[in-house]
């Protein structure tokens, strides 16, 4: 939450100047596009006649109708309590998206036929590749952060070289380097382990920086109190510093997890049968690319939503000790 000022303000979307401006902007915006070919124009046929010959009047009427609907919608939502506002706006945006996908005329039977395989093979692979990578990346991140904060020259040098290298190279290149480069050294590595290794190393590097900043955000006094009671370094880190750093670490780490979930699609280039790979290949034979790609997109989104929910759960848990 932002800082809640106790001064009661008028609701913005009910101020006449705001409503008028909003109406004007929407009207001009839709005037600028020629909407006469859309299904909305079809709905307007009783008013404007044949849409394609309605000319400037038709354009204006369509834009005007949209502006009225939009403005009325916003003003009405302004009356609802916060929770409802959030729900309604989510729902409306979702409907707009579905309407957008409608325009592709997707073949639902085809999706229904391929979906089970997309999930049982693709989603499962995506999930376990990401999950293992997340765990390894977190372990690397803690070790890397400690190394970067230590005054041991070797540890610092290795950690900073590592973060610099893996943050500096495109992930796609890292995937290739590991899958095609390691065999040069004599390690023949399968596609899945190579993908996991690349993802772990890359995200471990980003998360090292997140963990480092989280650890640094904890007041020196906590270290002093802990050490002055005779706690060793590891104990202080594990029981005192990290638990306090987690609320700082978790939001950006949640970001990284979501990002990793989607970047796991990059390992499709080395032939791992994960979600993205299947989405591209399943539709190829029958040229039904869009069906599979949109399905995969929706699945990625739903998985991300799950991660978002987990993140907000954890954040709420750590909020406990901050409530007066």
């Amino acid at each position: 939450m932002l800082y809640p000022d106790t001064v009661e303000a008028e609701i913005l979307v009910h101020k006449p100047w705001f409503v008028a401006t909003m109406f004007g902007v929407v009207l001009l915006l839709f005037m600028a596009f020629n909407m006469s070919g859309t299904s909305f124009a079809e709905l307007m046929r009783p008013v404007i006649g044949e849409p394609s010959v309605s000319g400037l009047y038709g354009r204006f009427a369509i834009a005007f109708a949209i502006a009225v609907i939009f403005t009325l919608n916003v003003v009405l939502i302004g009356f609802a309590p916060l929770k409802f506002q959030i729900g309604i706006v989510w729902l409306e945006l979702l409907l707009l998206f579905i309407a957008f996908f409608e325009t592709f005329h997707l073949s639902l039977p085809f999706i229904r036929e391929k979906l089970p395989f997309l999930i049982s093979q693709g989603v499962v692979t995506t999930l376990y590749v990401s999950a293992i990578s997340i765990v390894i990346a977190s372990v690397i991140a803690v070790a890397g952060a400690v190394a970067k904060l230590s005054n041991n020259g070797f540890a610092f040098a290795i950690a900073s070289f590592y973060t610099s290298f893996f943050r500096g190279l495109p992930l796609l290149m890292q995937v290739y380097l590991i899958y095609l480069g390691l065999p040069q050294l004599g390690f023949v590595i399968n596609a899945v382990p190579a993908g996991i290794l690349a993802l772990s190393l890359c995200y471990g590097a980003y998360m090292t920086e997140i963990f480092r900043s989280g650890i640094q955000s904890i007041d020196r006094g906590q270290w002093e109190a802990s050490r002055s009671m005779g706690f060793g370094f590891a104990l202080t880190m594990r029981r005192i510093i990290l638990p306090q750093a987690l609320p700082v670490i978790i939001p950006p780490t949640g970001n990284q997890f979501i990002s990793m979930l989607k970047d796991s699609s990059l390992v499709s280039v080395i032939g791992v049968w994960e979600l993205m790979f299947l989405a591209r290949t399943l539709g190829q034979k029958t040229f039904q690319h869009m069906e599979m790609l949109i399905s995969a997109a929706m699945i990625y989104w739903m998985l991300s939503i799950c991660l978002e929910l987990i993140q907000s759960r954890i954040e709420r848990h750590y909020h406990r000790s901050k409530v007066r």
């Binding site: 006094g221 906590q222 002093e224 109190a225 306090q244 000790s321 901050k322």
Partner: peptide
């Protein structure tokens, strides 16, 4: 040792 800023562990 008792500190000026207390330094209690806020998460416990």
């Amino acid at each position: 040792m008792v500190f000026q800023q207390f330094n209690l562990f806020p998460h416990m």
